[in-house]
Design a protein around this nucleic acid. Structure first.
Length: 420
RNA sequence: GUGGGUGUAGCUCAACUGGUUAGAGUACCGGACUGUGGAUCCGGUUGUUGGGAGUCCGAAUCUCCUCACCCACCCCA
């Protein structure tokens, strides 16, 4: 078929499914607000430099996955590939460090990466994330993780746990990196081709490789064993806070993240229901990012989750939420001469907060009622010649078939009494 | 970027080994039934068989190219 279609890796979200999106987005946003986070909306386009200095020049995201283009003045722009760097850019740009600390944000929206689409991975995908900027305490790490579990619980998802690790900071990671590199060099001949390349550029990522021999990986030095005092204390306090809060976590010494800005705490929530793209949520601490972007030294922690992946899990695990009730739907059926009266009736009802659909085709009542029931209406309001001349309406309950005639002035109240 | 799988009405699928005008269910529209719906019956619309080239008397079917989707690698949310 020769028709214009969605761009590869993008999709339309249509009627039944979009209801689930609205509901899930509502739960996420309201929970974040209840935890004291405020919504932050940043632009979809940013200058390319924002991500090369923050996410990292050698990461895949920056090297080959960004949608980048020059604008008409030759500026190097990109469609945002992730949400943390823009949040920090906004924090620095608006000097939010003068506001009470920490600044706590949540965001939701579209992000873009030029990748081969597969299950749980689109070129335009949707993220929800939170960022707490300006607090170094381990309890801030604990709070953002606690928020995750409150959200998951409100969505009816149980049985998930978070993988946690610490990858150190500027005072201990360089030494660990060297140690790991040295250890990897003694096994270089056994590494896969990708890991040979990673060995020089980003040795931590070898730990994440699924192709390597598990025994070999287990024998490598672990970052948690080489933390400086400050990082070790932070990590230990975080774990004990998670214990006290009964948050299910696993220590995973192989957990590293693909973005360069992380320090100390890193974490992920994985799900078996997601196929190969099993990461539902990922995040961590990024204590140097604000400074890198030109702000004052400011510790921060946050996470982002993939909406497509969350929706898939909710649909599989929480069918009652997935099969959300259709809205109470009222359908106005009218005769030719009552068109104006029908439109005015709807206007009054909508102003009083009742959702009303109207059939603009004033053909036979049988036709209109048939359309009303096919569209899932609970009630039909019939306003024909008789009703419009008397100032009444007939309300028919389409599930029981019963109907009664009442004064049109009392209609809003009547429906309100029945809507729940 | 690399591999594997799949492309036929809006949806679910047929169509023998290559053989007339590509069918059925469902959906949609209309009628029986112009002041009362979901049922039933009758009728109707729906396709460049993803697109292009080739082989052949003849292609949805075989070959090649291309595009899209699905899955996986890679990477990540």
């Amino acid at each position: 078929m020769n028709m214009i279609k969605t761009v590869k890796g993008t999709t339309d979200i249509l009627a039944p499914e979009v209801l689930l999106w609205q509901r899930v987005e509502g739960v996420l946003a309201s929970t974040a607000k209840a935890y004291g986070y405020e919504e932050l909306r940043t632009p979809t386009i940013e200058v390319q430099e924002l991500f090369s200095v923050s996410v990292g020049q050698t990461t895949d995201i920056v090297e080959r996955e960004m949608y980048s283009f020059p604008d008409k003045k030759g500026r190097h722009l990109v469609l945002r590939p992730e949400g943390t760097a823009p949040a920090c850019r906004a924090y620095v740009e608006h000097q939010l460090n003068v506001q009470p600390s920490p600044s706590k944000f949540f965001y939701m929206g579209s992000f873009f990466r030029y990748e081969q689409p597969q299950s749980g991975r689109k070129r335009e995908f949707h993220s929800f994330g939170v960022e707490a900027i300006g607090e170094q305490s381990h309890l801030q790490d604990a709070e953002v993780i606690d928020l995750v579990f409150t959200m998951l619980s409100r969505l009816g998802l149980t049985g998930l746990s978070v993988d946690v690790n610490s990858i150190g900071d500027a005072s201990c990671r360089p030494q660990y990196k060297e140690l790991l590199q040295a250890s990897l060099k003694t096994h270089e001949d056994k590494l896969c081709d990708d890991c040979k390349r990673r060995l020089m550029e980003n040795p931590l990522r070898v730990l994440d490789c699924k192709r390597e021999d598990p025994q070999l990986l287990a024998s490598l030095p672990k970052s948690v064993d080489f933390l400086c005092d400050e990082c070790r204390t932070h990590h230990a306090l975080l774990l004990s806070a998670l214990d006290s809060l009964h948050i299910p976590y696993r220590q995973n010494s192989r957990l590293v993240r693909g973005l360069d800005y992380y320090t100390k705490t890193v974490f992920e929530v994985l799900s078996e229901d997601l196929g190969a793209q099993s990461a539902l949520l990922g995040g961590g601490r990024y204590d140097y990012l604000v400074r890198q972007l030109g702000g004052p030294q400011t510790p921060a922690v946050g996470w982002g989750l993939g909406m497509e992946r969350l929706i898939a899990i909710v649909a599989a695990h929480s069918p009652d939420l997935a099969a959300s009730l259709p809205p109470l739907r009222i359908y106005v059926v009218h005769s030719d001469t009552a068109t104006t009266a029908a439109f005015e009736l709807r206007r009054r009802l909508v102003e009083s907060g009742v959702a009303v659909d109207i059939d603009v085709r004033s053909d036979s009542f049988g036709k209109q009622l048939a359309r009303a029931s096919r569209r899932g209406a609970r009630y039909a309001i019939i306003i024909g010649d008789d009703e419009s001349s008397r100032g009444t309406v007939t309300v028919k309950d389409l599930s029981t078939g019963t109907q009664e005639t009442l004064e049109s002035d009392g209609l809003a109240e009547y429906l309100d009494g029945r809507s729940r």
